[in-house]
Design a protein around this nucleic acid. Structure first.
Lengths: 255, 255
DNA sequence: TCCGTCAAGTTGTATATACAGGCTAGACCA
DNA sequence: TGGTCTAGCCTGTATATACAACTTGACGGA
């Protein structure tokens, strides 16, 4: 089974995706222009154009006529799972987000966590537990485990300033995610942290995120059922895209 | 605000999508080849190629070198919202699905329903209510409203044989969807239909689906929290696609 | 100083052309 | 009759070229 050579436009795409994944190119960075790719890679401009155009369709980059091609931040992507970060969600509603760190420690993975993260029982993982507040009311209890070697300086971070989600996606862009939503009767500890009434149902989102082909973090996000709902929106590919709003967003990034 | 002319490749795409939406082209039908489009539309082959290639990426058609371009069946679409149909979900788990129709009537839209469906208060809508069973246990109470003129023969359907979701997507492919997930304390009626224990939380999915630019159906899907969870999986676009299996599937369609 | 113009670079689209490779039907030969 | 082979159509990719529209910055004149 000898692998045939990939077509040139795909090689270009892989090259650029590689530079983004490795962190060489970061969100809002400028990607080589079509003409630069023509010279550097010895291809025709149409081939470079196809590579960059497909990367645009796939959400990796944004292109602005007259200016250039820029790496897009992966969190945006009008997708059901786009809400990766409770802080952004709260700010989007015009409310204030605060956060309290309850635990930030190195632990040995056990049971469900080890299985979810595909690591041996007893392997090193970081354990984070924090409560997110919206206008002072607790809205999410985040119980997260992170594979240790993925984020070695995890214990040094101040997660009351930058949420774990933002910290992790800054290390490496989200590549794959899986989530399960469940309604629960919260246990006493959760109920107390989220200031929930007796008998109030809880909404739990269990989310596992992959990077470079392996799961790197597993989070249990508990919410009070009476004050939280999970919204998603689905637009099939190929529908016309907004441009103005996106550009404005990009402007802010570059200031 | 005069609309500028759409680019030619987009006009070609719109033309073909239109023929698919209208039923002129049906799944597995042959789409005009690049050369046929060149002659008929007076464009270059590269432009026709771009139109058909993008329709391939967007899942409208499948292309087989040497044979032609064929309309694909829309149901496939590995997406978080792909599970539109509880019956398929249950069968996929290897369980048996049964269904009981509680209500199938023409009503006047009021309040939340009229607002969700963008119709006037008092407009005609169909109201469906059914319970879905997995191996005999109630797993979903489906409370659905459908815009009347979208599915005029709605009252004639036997929804214990074909679920409303399957019936509606057969009329017109899903074009846009929006859902909100919420944990609730179910009211007595829901609790009774789903045979839920006292104090057991419920998981409610409220889903609104668009077709041809307008909302056509709004469903409240109640589930028992102890027996149901909502799973989603996200893979970013641009990951390599399977080809062999698809072709085999297509072969079967054409026999 | 301020404003308009212009040049250069960038993306977006469209065309003509070329070659490679998959598929099929029908011609052709044994 | 049966098998083989080829011509013709199809998609897939790649190049060279052209023009349009947009953005930015530099330059020059009022």
């Amino acid at each position: 089974m000898t692998a045939v050579a990939k077509p040139m436009y795909q090689q270009l795409k892989d090259l650029i995706i590689g530079r983004i994944s490795s962190g060489d190119l970061r969100p809002a960075d400028r990607v080589p222009s079509e003409n630069e790719l023509v010279e550097a890679m010895n291809v025709s401009r149409m081939t470079a154009n196809r590579a960059l155009r497909e990367l645009t369709d796939e959400g990796y980059v944004r292109r602005i006529a007259g200016r250039g091609t820029f790496v897009s931040d992966f969190r945006a992507g009008s997708h059901v799972l786009e809400v990766q970060n409770i802080a952004d969600e709260i700010k989007q509603r015009g409310r204030t987000h605060t956060c309290e760190v309850l635990r930030q420690s190195l632990q040995h993975a056990r049971g469900e966590v080890a299985k979810a993260l595909h690591v041996e029982q007893g392997s090193d993982v970081f354990h984070l537990m924090l409560v997110h507040y919206e206008n002072g009311s607790p809205i999410q209890l985040e119980d997260r485990h992170v594979v240790a070697d993925f984020a070695p300086d995890c214990l040094l971070q101040d997660f009351s300033a930058v949420t774990p989600s933002a910290y992790l996606t800054a290390i490496s862009p989200l590549q794959e995610a899986e989530q399960v939503v469940r309604a629960t009767q919260p246990n006493a500890a959760v109920q107390q942290q989220l200031k929930m009434a007796d008998g109030e149902p809880g909404l739990v989102v269990m989310r596992r995120t992959w990077s470079h082909g392996r799961p790197v973090t597993f989070a249990r996000l508990h919410h009070p059922g009476s004050r939280y709902e999970l919204a998603g929106h689905y637009t099939p590919p190929g529908t016309p895209k907004s441009t103005t709003a996106d550009v404005v967003e990009l402007e802010k990034l570059q200031q």
